[in-house]
């Protein structure tokens, strides 16, 4: 680094500008060592593990907006996946496990290639902020149009809401936001793209309208 330090006064000031950090101690070292071992996947409980993500329906930033109609963000299971690129799984609040493929990527050739790269990156799930996505969805509101044309709010305390369904929507939205951000980082900030998911969540606690055979 000697070639960089041509201004000793400024360098000294910059070296000294470092913010406060915790002091090293035997106790801190022990806590760090324990954390290093405790974070090994086999040692992480279901509740503490960052939940891997997945999409339970057709999503795309061009098609799905915050607070969109329920039919656009529900757990619609596609009949098949013609071109799966990755497999994902996650656990719902009820304990039901969702799993299945993501794929059928669409977009311009360059965008589709970048999207495939994003989806297959092992670190991709780590970029999903489910809590923030849930808060964003809740703030945006969510409505459902019943068969008689009545529009109802899908929110906690109504028969149209469940914790599993809300969590799944948050996962979907978090993934969409993360894809959008990752594509922007790759030089495609305003690209049109989509991908599909064929996710099954056996035993999930969905409201009646989301159950197979209900309106969708």
């Amino acid at each position: 680094m000697s070639d960089m330090r041509e201004d000793s006064f400024l360098d000294t000031q910059l070296d000294a500008s470092s913010p406060l950090t915790s002091a090293n101690s035997a106790e801190r070292s022990a806590a760090l060592a324990e954390m290093a071992r405790d974070t090994e996947p086999s040692n992480v409980s279901v509740l503490r593990r960052r939940r891997p993500l997945v999409i339970g329906s057709v999503v795309g930033v061009a098609l799905l907006g915050i607070g969109g109609a329920a039919v656009a963000s529900g757990a619609v299971s596609l009949p098949f996946m013609s071109d799966p690129v990755t497999t994902v799984d996650y656990t719902l609040p009820s304990g039901a496990v969702c799993s299945g493929p993501l794929g059928d990527v669409e977009g311009s050739p360059e965008v589709a290639a970048a999207l495939r790269e994003v989806l297959t990156d092992p670190a991709f799930p780590d970029t999903w902020d489910i809590e923030a996505a849930a808060a964003e969805l809740e703030a945006g509101g969510h409505t459902l149009t019943l068969e008689d044309g009545t529009e109802v709010e899908v929110k906690e305390g109504t028969p149209y809401w469940s914790a599993d369904a809300a969590y799944q929507s948050a996962v979907e939205w978090a993934a969409v936001l993360a894809v959008s951000e990752q594509l922007a980082l790759r030089g495609f900030p305003d690209a049109i793209w989509s991908y599909d998911g064929d996710i099954a969540c056996p035993g999930a606690d969905y409201p009646e309208w989301m159950e197979p055979g209900a309106q969708s």
């Binding site: 000031q13 470092s18 913010p19 406060l20 915790s22 002091a23 101690s25 801190r28 954390m35």
Partner: peptide
Amino acid sequence: RLRAISFERANVSAPAD
């Protein structure tokens, strides 16, 4: 736990300046 250790007044190092 780590945060608690870091926040113990005696254990917090001063900023560099």
